[in-house]
Design a protein around this nucleic acid. Structure first.
Length: 376
DNA sequence: ACCCGCGTATAGCCGGGTAG
DNA sequence: CTACCCGGCTATACGCGGGT
């Protein structure tokens, strides 16, 4: 489906009626006003429809706002999600539904703006721009790559500039925290695996463009409510996910599937002392990767006395090759005790694990050198 | 069909240490 | 002194995967 051509045809269709009153009649006949009103929308323009839901929620992070840049607060967050005519980033794509979420006290306000037909896009965008004014930080799922560009593009194509100042994209947080433990990091998988949300009767994303086209072409409004619902659920999940990530970062929650190694490393990189605690907890929970990262952190900090017991534990309980190598390096180069270095390195060969050729040759080289040192 | 941020792997550089 | 080697850090290249 070439949506560019399609959009052009829609424009011509309305343009064909020259008389003002005639045009209006035609529009009113084509836009299913009563259907949209029945869905809780109100008319906000010739083609623009708006509805709002207030959802009572608890547990909004009021103080611990680790994700929010600058001096903004969570009152200035706007959660947003678009339903579009396709995935491709080309100019022919546009969006016909935007969901916005705002936090207000203990409530979540979800606003949805629907474009009843393409010729109304300019007024639709102007209306959305007004609604977006209160939001300073945009929260999305993959919005940095998808939604924000489409949004900007549509404003641009209509001769209006719009820039999303600050953005928080939760996709990257989901990857960081659950890439190892979930089959994938689609919003759906995160909902099911972490948030405990299982959508019933959800519209698969790929069906959405066709549903909208079929509505435009044949006036088929039947499946539209499910699209509105899908968009609403996306906003709700976005908010829940945002709260969960804030909770994890402030140490209030730590779902069992969370990758403590990745989180700990990220925190350490951000010079955050809680990174050490996260890695400690991960290692205590049996994650060797967390122990390894913690030991390397101690090594970088020159805290050998803290690193050494970790390496020994990693060798004894997890048969960690990297820990063996670290112990061998330590004794060969730092303590100048090649016999101790050899003692540890030899364990790797005793284990008789399958090794990649590269790693194997590296280990052999190290052993050769130690043998030379020992015999001289 | 598209974009883009992120994680991972690899190469290269530098400083320190050592053998000859 | 020189030539080399090792380890650690940084820069760059690459590929993945999510949105409708």
């Amino acid at each position: 489906m070439n949506s560019d051509l399609f959009a052009l045809k829609r424009r011509l269709k309305y343009a064909a009626f020259t008389g003002k009153s005639q045009e209006k009649k035609r529009i009113e006949a084509k836009v299913p006003v009563s259907f949209l009103l029945s869905q809780g929308f109100e008319k906000a323009g010739e083609f623009t429809f708006f509805r709002r839901k207030v959802i009572e929620e608890h547990g909004f992070p009021q103080s611990a706002a680790r994700l929010i840049p600058g001096t903004y607060t969570c009152r200035e967050l706007v959660f947003f999600d678009l339903e579009t005519t396709g995935l491709s980033g080309g100019a022919g794509n546009y969006f016909f539904l935007i969901g916005l979420g705002f936090l207000e006290g203990s409530s979540l306000i979800v606003e949805q703006v629907f474009l009843a037909d393409y010729p109304g896009e300019a007024e639709y965008l102007d209306y959305i721009r007004e609604r977006l004014k209160r939001g300073k930080v945009f929260v999305s799922y993959n919005g940095k790559s998808f939604d924000s560009h489409l949004l900007r593009m549509r404003f641009q194509m209509n001769g209006r500039e719009y820039k999303l100042a600050e953005q928080i994209d939760l996709l990257y947080w989901a990857r960081r925290l659950w890439k190892k433990t979930l089959p994938d990091c689609s919003l759906k998988s995160v909902e099911a695996g972490v948030l405990g949300i299982n959508r019933e009767d959800d519209v698969p994303g790929y069906e959405i463009p066709d549903i909208y086209f079929s509505y435009l072409r044949a006036g088929d409004t039947g499946p539209l409510p499910r699209v509105f619902e899908h968009n609403l659920q996306d906003i709700l999940s976005l908010v829940k996910l945002y709260i969960l990530v804030e909770d994890i970062l402030s140490g209030h929650q730590f779902p069992p599937v969370t990758d403590s190694r990745a989180l700990g490393c990220w925190l350490l990189k951000e010079c955050d002392a809680t990174g050490v605690n996260v890695l400690k907890r991960g290692f205590a929970g049996g994650d060797a990767g967390s122990g390894r990262e913690l030991s390397l952190y101690y090594k970088r900090a020159g805290l050998w006395l803290l690193a050494l017991p970790l390496w020994r534990e990693l060798v004894e309980n997890y048969r960690s090759i990297s820990a063996v190598v670290e112990l061998a390096k330590y004794y060969e180069h730092r303590e100048k005790e090649p016999e101790k270095a050899y003692y540890w390195l030899d364990k790797v060969f005793a284990w008789d694990l399958p090794l990649s050729p590269l790693l194997r040759s590296e280990l052999l080289k190290r052993r050769e050198r130690l043998i030379r040192k020992l015999s001289s």
